[in-house]
């Protein structure tokens, strides 16, 4: 799916936001959290659809609603035993491991967000938008693609250090 089609699809799905909001609120989710959960579900939907062998068995709306349900219960850590939550995922054709990894990648977003605007823009343009180094150099006002590439390594290095220190910190806290 190219970027534009993706955006149109997301716009279409966003119209369902009031329904999802009502649904999440009925599950005891605060409205301030509800939109974060909804957006997270849209991300998961988009990413899952990008996988070649993924088969969507239910309507996109129901997929998103199911993911919202999973995310909310997972976040609030109450009422539902893990087993039941996983069943929820199986119904949606989503493997448990895949979901766990997604939650891990989500943490990486925090890392990407804390390495500075320029680095963030560079890495998301390259890995997310798939822009070429030449284009990126142009966009970010760098002399040429080589400069951009060297900068990319520096940004990656920065991200890795930050991620490692974060992991260390969270292990200490345990």
């Amino acid at each position: 799916m190219d970027h534009k089609t993706q955006k149109i699809e997301l716009q279409r799905l966003y119209k369902k936001w009031p329904d999802i909001k009502r649904y999440l609120r009925s599950k005891g989710c605060l409205s301030t959290d509800a939109e974060d959960i909804f957006q997270e579900a849209l991300i998961i939907y988009t990413r899952k659809c990008e996988e070649k062998d993924f088969q969507l068995d239910v309507a996109p709306f129901h997929f998103i609603k199911g993911i919202c349900k999973f995310l909310w219960y997972n976040q609030s850590r109450k009422n539902k035993p893990q087993m039941e939550l996983n069943e929820e995922l199986t119904k949606l054709n989503v493997e448990e491991d895949w979901m766990q990894k997604e939650l891990q990648f989500k943490k990486m977003e925090d890392v990407i967000n804390s390495i500075g605007e320029k680095c963030k823009e560079l890495l998301t343009s390259f890995y997310g938008l798939g822009l070429s180094m030449t284009k990126i150099a142009e966009k970010l006002g760098m002399r040429n693609d080589k400069v951009a590439k060297a900068q990319k390594y520096r940004c990656l290095q920065k991200a890795k250090e930050l991620a490692a220190s974060k992991t260390a910190a969270s292990t200490e806290n345990l």
């Binding site: 991300i43 989500k106 977003e109 997310g128």
Partner: peptide, 13 residues
């Protein structure tokens, strides 16, 4: 980190 960057991009959208 690549996945994180990809995700950050999707989140922006």
């Amino acid at each position: 980190i690549y996945e994180g960057a990809k995700r950050a991009n999707t989140r922006n959208t």
